[in-house]
Structure formats: C-alpha cells, structure tokens
C-alpha cells in the first residue's frame, strides 16, 4: 500500500496538509452547529413574553474567571506548539500540562456553577433561558472535554511520535491547537450571549 500523500507535506497548489484542511472543514460544521443553537436562542428569546435578567440568574464573576482561564489556556497551547517548532520537548510538556490543568480548572468551576444552580432548584426545565444555558454550555463543555482528551493523549502516549516523526507530531499539536482555540472562541461568544446580554 502506498502512503497517502500530503499528510505532513503541504500540497503546493492548495497550500495545506490534509489534517489541517480536515480540521478547518470540521470547524466549519461546528460553526453551523453552534450557529444553529444560537439562532434557536435568538428565536426563542425574541419570541418570549418574559425573559429573566440573565446576569442576575448566572454568576458573571465566575464566568469571567473562566473566560480568563480559557484565554490563558489558549496562550499556553500556542506556546506548547512553538516550543515544539523550536525543538524543545521539555518545554512542550510543561506548557501542554499547564493547558490541561487550566482546562480542568474551567471544568471544575463549571461543575460548581451547575451544582449551585441545581442546589437552588434551577434546572434546564425551569425556563427556556436556563434550558438554553444548559444546552449551550453543556455542548461546549463536551467539546472542551473532547479537546482535553486529545491534549492528554498528545502529552502522554501520543508524544512518543516525537521520537519517530517529530514533524508529524508538531503538526498534530498544531491541529489540536486550532481546535482548542475554536473551543475558546465559542466560549467567548457564549459568555457574551448568555451572561452579559
């Protein structure tokens, strides 16, 4: 069997590798997914007779902390990749580790937020705002957790590829980083829409 071309080399006339193109396509469909959910939000909110004061129901300070955490994790993710391009595996491990920890902190805060809502008798069935809040943030959390799994793999067993095929490994991290930034960007939108507007 012949190897599939352009898995690590850039195809000259298109300017991308297969995995990177695949990731961009995947993200295009993700944009449509979150876009559809957000348009449901817009339609339901604009059609609603009453809508709660969002920032009163949710905790803006906690979400702000979470926003800072995710932005920081995006930076460390980017720096992890630049460490690899500079050939520094030790630095990569540290920065990727920090990215993972930041993701975990985000999840912990989110879990606290959720359980606080439940403790006050507020759930997705309470009203459509809370329903949408749980759906949108829930789908986002799943995406974040998926990203953390990939990152954990790239930090742990997946990192063995660094020895056999460093170029390909670096590209894997780059593609994972694109995804991670996207998950971040989604959170920024959700933060504005669900907490601030």
């Amino acid at each position: 069997m012949t190897a599939i071309p352009y898995t690590t080399d850039v195809r000259p006339d298109t300017g991308v590798t297969n995995p990177k193109l695949g990731m961009w396509l995947f993200l295009a469909s993700e944009v449509m997914l979150f876009g559809s959910l957000l348009s449901a939000y817009v339609l339901l909110r604009s059609g609603a007779l009453t809508w709660p004061d969002q920032s009163a129901v949710l905790s803006v300070p906690l979400a702000t902390v979470n926003t800072v955490i995710l932005i920081a994790s995006s930076v460390t993710m980017l720096r992890a990749w630049t460490a690899l391009t500079a050939g520094n595996m030790r630095q990569y491990r540290v920065r990727m580790g920090v990215t993972l920890v930041l993701g975990a902190v985000f999840l912990a805060i989110k879990t606290f937020e959720y359980s606080d809502k439940f403790a006050h008798g507020l759930g997705p069935a309470t009203d459509n705002f809370l329903g949408l809040y749980f759906v949108l943030t829930g789908v986002h959390v799943l995406h974040l957790a998926g990203g953390m799994l990939v990152n954990a793999f790239l930090l742990g067993p997946g990192a063995r590829m660094w020895r056999s095929d460093p170029r390909r490994f670096t590209q894997r991290v780059e593609v994972a980083a694109i995804y991670w930034h996207f998950v971040d960007a989604v959170w920024l939108v959700l933060f504005v829409v669900l907490y601030l507007l």
Binding site: S29, L33, S36, A40, G123, P124, A125, G131, F134
Partner: peptide, 21 residues
Amino acid sequence: FPALQAAAILQGMDRLVGTSF
C-alpha cells in the same frame, strides 16, 4: 446537517429533561 444535530439535541432535552424549547 449540524442544524438537525442542534434540533435533535433540543428535542432530546424536551423529551428527556423536560425543557420546552
């Protein structure tokens, strides 16, 4: 297809969790 994915999530919530989207 993601639009139906979103719709399916919302309807699943309506059916299982009791939301009223």
